[in-house]
C-alpha cells in the first residue's frame, strides 16, 4: 500500500508572496482514517501547518474545508469518502480571505449571521415558567437549529461568492427561518421586512450546493423557499 498523496494549500503571509500547493506523503497504515487525522499526521511532519479544529466529532464546525473539490468537515469525512486514485487535495473554504494555510477569515460569514438577528424576540412578558410550545410547533425547528456555523454551505454558494456583503447566504438564511418558524418569536413582520430587498434572500438561485455539502444534512434551500412564501404571504 503506497502512501497517501496529499496536496495542500499553503500560505504564510509573513514569508510567502503568493499561495502555493505543497505535496505531502502520509502513511495511514492502510486505515480509513478521517481527513482531520491526516492533517494531524501532516502537522507532525511540519508543525507550521495551520488549520482549525476543536471537537473532532462534527459538532463544533471548526474544520470546514474543501476536500477534493467538495466542502465538508475534515473530522467526520473518512478518506474512503473523498480520496480518488490515492490522492487528496485540500484547500481552504472557497470565497473567503485566507489568513494562513487552511485558516480563512470568517468575518463576512459571521457578519451575515449577525445581520439576521439570530436570537429570539418576544415582546410579551416572560412567564414564571417556560413558554409553552407544542411538540408539533417544536418539530418545525428540526432541521434548522442544528446548524453548526461551519460555513461549508455559504462558501459553496456561487451567489455568496459574488455578493458576500449583500446576500445573507444559506447558513444565515437557515437561521433566519429558524426564528421565523419559532412559535415563540413575535418579530415575524420585522424580520421579513429586513429581507425583502433583491439581495438578502432573493439572490438565491436554487443552485442547491448548500444542500449537497451540508455536513449535518440540513436543507437551506428549502428554508429559503419557506422564507419566500412567508414574504409573499405578508406582502400580498
Amino acid at each position: 500500500m503506497s502512501n497517501l498523496q496529499v496536496s495542500i494549500y499553503r500560505y504564510n503571509p509573513e514569508t510567502d508572496s503568493a499561495p502555493y500547493m505543497q505535496e505531502f506523503q502520509v502513511d495511514t497504515k492502510g486505515r480509513d482514517v478521517m481527513v482531520l487525522d491526516v492533517l494531524h499526521m501532516m502537522k507532525e511532519q511540519d508543525s507550521a501547518l495551520a488549520f482549525r479544529r476543536s471537537c473532532r466529532e462534527g459538532v463544533c464546525g471548526s474544520d470546514g474545508m474543501n476536500m477534493n473539490g467538495k466542502n465538508g468537515l475534515a473530522c467526520i469525512t473518512p478518506l474512503s469518502d473523498v480520496v480518488k486514485n490515492n490522492k487528496l487535495t485540500l484547500r481552504p473554504l472557497p470565497g473567503l480571505p485566507v489568513i494562513r494555510d487552511m485558516v480563512v477569515d470568517m468575518g463576512l460569514f459571521y457578519k451575515q449571521y449577525e445581520r439576521i438577528q439570530p436570537y429570539l424576540k418576544n415582546d410579551t412578558p416572560a412567564p414564571a415558567i417556560e413558554r409553552l410550545q407544542s411538540p408539533e410547533e417544536r418539530d418545525k425547528l428540526d432541521g434548522l437549529y442544528e446548524c453548526i456555523l461551519c460555513a461549508c454551505c455559504s462558501t459553496a454558494c456561487p451567489s455568496f461568492w459574488w455578493n458576500p456583503e449583500k446576500f445573507v447566504g444559506p447558513a444565515g438564511l437557515l437561521q433566519s427561518y429558524r426564528f421565523l418558524a419559532d412559535s415563540r418569536d413575535t418579530a415575524t413582520s420585522e424580520r421579513l421586512s429586513d429581507l425583502e430587498d433583491p439581495f438578502s434572500v432573493f439572490r438565491c438561485r436554487g443552485i442547491m450546493n448548500c444542500v449537497a455539502v451540508c455536513p449535518k444534512g440540513l436543507n437551506p434551500t428549502r428554508a429559503i423557499g419557506k422564507i419566500r412564501e412567508m414574504l409573499l404571504a405578508e406582502a400580498t
Binding site: K166, P198, S200, R228
Partner: peptide, 15 residues
C-alpha cells in the same frame, strides 16, 4: 436590508 435603486421593482419580492 440591502438598499438598491436600479432593480426593477426596488424590492426583491416584487422582482
Amino acid at each position: 436590508m440591502v438598499t438598491n435603486i436600479t432593480s426593477f421593482g426596488r424590492s426583491g419580492l416584487s422582482d
